[in-house]
Simulated assay, not measured.
Amino acid sequence: MSGKDIYSEVRNSRDFTGKVVLVTGSAGGIGEQIAKLYSALGAGVVITGRRADGLKRVAQECQQLSPTNLKAIEIPADLTNDDDLHRVFNETIKTFKRLDVLVNNAGVYLKANGTDDNFLDILDKSLKVDLKASLTLIRLFQPYLKQTKGNIVNITSVVTERPSKSFLGYQLAKQGLEMATTTLALELAPHGIRVNSVSIGVVRSYPLWPDADVEKVTAKSPAMTPLGRNGEPIEVAKAVVFLSSSDASFITGHKLEVDGGIKYNIGSDYMFG
């Protein structure tokens, strides 16, 4: 590495000035924080989700955080709709002509046993958002990620580590995304594209279910977590930024767990027991 200032590179590894980042599911919660951190680090950010009011707020806050006053591009979209997925792609490229980082964060958390009457519908919805939408965006943006030697970061979950009752649809979708991460890492490596995932535990974000189940989970989780607390959205965002930075230049096909160690203590009844 003669003639290369490797220390300067590390010092500047979180400077995303001139880079373009797309974060799905960014109208609130973890996706919002990921988008804000990239904005604070100088990136041009594209945010997408179903809640237009949330996107408007996040875009304004991204602009306030941006060193150059860049406002995030808002694209309201339902990722189960193919036309919306193509619109996200088209508007991103029309605006920026490039993409450096794709963060597949959007997900649905739907409760159903594998033998419930509505399970196949739940499975279909889970696969459409967590897996098919992510793969569609990767396929659409691949030519532009080749040009920038960009990064893909998929958000998965540590619940894939153990069988979990009432959560089969979500687990199958996330496990599929984890397999896609490793396989695509091999397929895209010759083009200089790195593909990694961040596997999360319980993160204090916003309610994910329309009932009290989420509060039960978040309330009991600190006692089961070796680090003694739930995670924060910024901690997930930091991991995503790291994996897409030059500090992770020799990392691909990796699942980075950001869970406080809870995966070692969860059982089959953890989510809804």
Results as ranks from 00 to 15, higher is better:
G3E: 15
K4M: 06
I6Y: 13
Y7D: 12
Y7G: 06
E9M: 13
N12E: 15
N12C: 12
S13Q: 13
F16K: 10
F16M: 10
T17S: 15
V20G: 02
V21W: 02
L22H: 03
V23C: 05
S26A: 15
A27D: 12
G29K: 00
E32W: 07
Q33F: 06
I34N: 05
A35P: 02
L37Y: 02
L37G: 05
I47E: 01
I47Q: 03
T48V: 03
G49R: 07
G49I: 05
Q60M: 08
Q64A: 14
S66K: 08
L70Y: 06
K71H: 07
K71I: 02
E74F: 02
E74K: 11
P76C: 01
L79R: 04
T80K: 14
T80R: 15
N81S: 13
D83T: 14
D84W: 08
H86D: 11
F89G: 03
F89S: 04
I93H: 00
T95C: 01
F96E: 04
F96D: 00
R98K: 14
V101W: 00
N105H: 01
A106I: 07
G107E: 11
L110Q: 13
N118Q: 13
L120K: 13
D124V: 02
L127G: 04
D130Q: 08
D130T: 14
L131C: 12
K132L: 14
